[in-house]
Amino acid sequence: MAAFITKRLALTVLVIIVTSIVAFMLVHLSGDPAAAMAGEGATDADIAAVRETYGFNRPLYAQYLDWVAKLLQGDFGRSYYLRMDVGDVLAEHMPITATLGALALGFALLLSVPLGVFAALWPNTMIDRFSLWLAVAGQALPSFLFALGLMYLFGVYLRWLPISGTGSWQNYIMPAIALGYYATPAIMRLTRSGMMDVLQSDHVRTARAYGLSPWRVIIKHSLRHAIIPVVSLAAVQLGFMLGGSIVIETIFSLKGIGYLAWESIQRADIEIIQAILLVIATAYALLTLVADLLNAALDPRIRVS
């Protein structure tokens, strides 16, 4: 187990390092950072001065190491547009996206895993067809359309939920559903096919042959196996959701990372875009790590040799 964790951790760190290099290069390849910083109408002398002050004339690797050293101390640099520390900006927006992502994933899992299980237990029945229909609809409908539909129904027509803002928990309901629904079809289909396979397997036949109660057979001896690939998929889907939050947060004016990214791209606030890239990639790597650890906990063949 220790060896397994060490190996996975090393891999995660490697992924984060590679991403940080990409994020760093982003700034230095997207133009001359000194010219950008000096602003429009700056003379060559001004730009040279900026270059000198901020060390842009040093070798790239030295600048990179310097940047990483600062990152490790929590110094993400400064947004010249907002005139704020990037770290502070992130700290303000990140919890909102984290909450949204967790709620969206929770919604997706609560909807799709039970549906997948029931569809596998009673294939070709009403419930199976209903979940298939739901999956097709989820795959076919662009998420912004679905979000607008929700907004119209619950926000404008029924007036049950606020249509925009970040103030209360009610603001999260529609965005979480809109974002989570997007992940539902894949998770449901994978749960269904996984359950169909496991229900045919020898050890489930053994569990039945020894008179174990149906729920024990279904949850303990079937779902535990079927859920293993779903865990990995859910991690990937949550990563997609972090990406998708750029659309959903903008539609619902939820001031999370996605919203911030949208704004920062518009005003070419490269420091913030760089930090967001790094944060999302790190989150992605950590999610994969968590998924692998969860799988190891679920399946002893991964952790015990």
Binding site: S201, D202, H203, R205, T206, A207, R208, A209, Y210, G211, L212, H221, R224, H225, L298, D299, P300, R301
Partner: peptide, 21 residues
């Protein structure tokens, strides 16, 4: 009630008949 208690079955492939988890 009967299975496992009054009738029990042993299967062909012991590699897959037990739950690996």
């Amino acid at each position: 009630k009967l299975r496992g208690d009054r009738i029990a079955m042993i299967f062909q492939d012991p590699m897959t008949a037990l739950d690996p988890c």
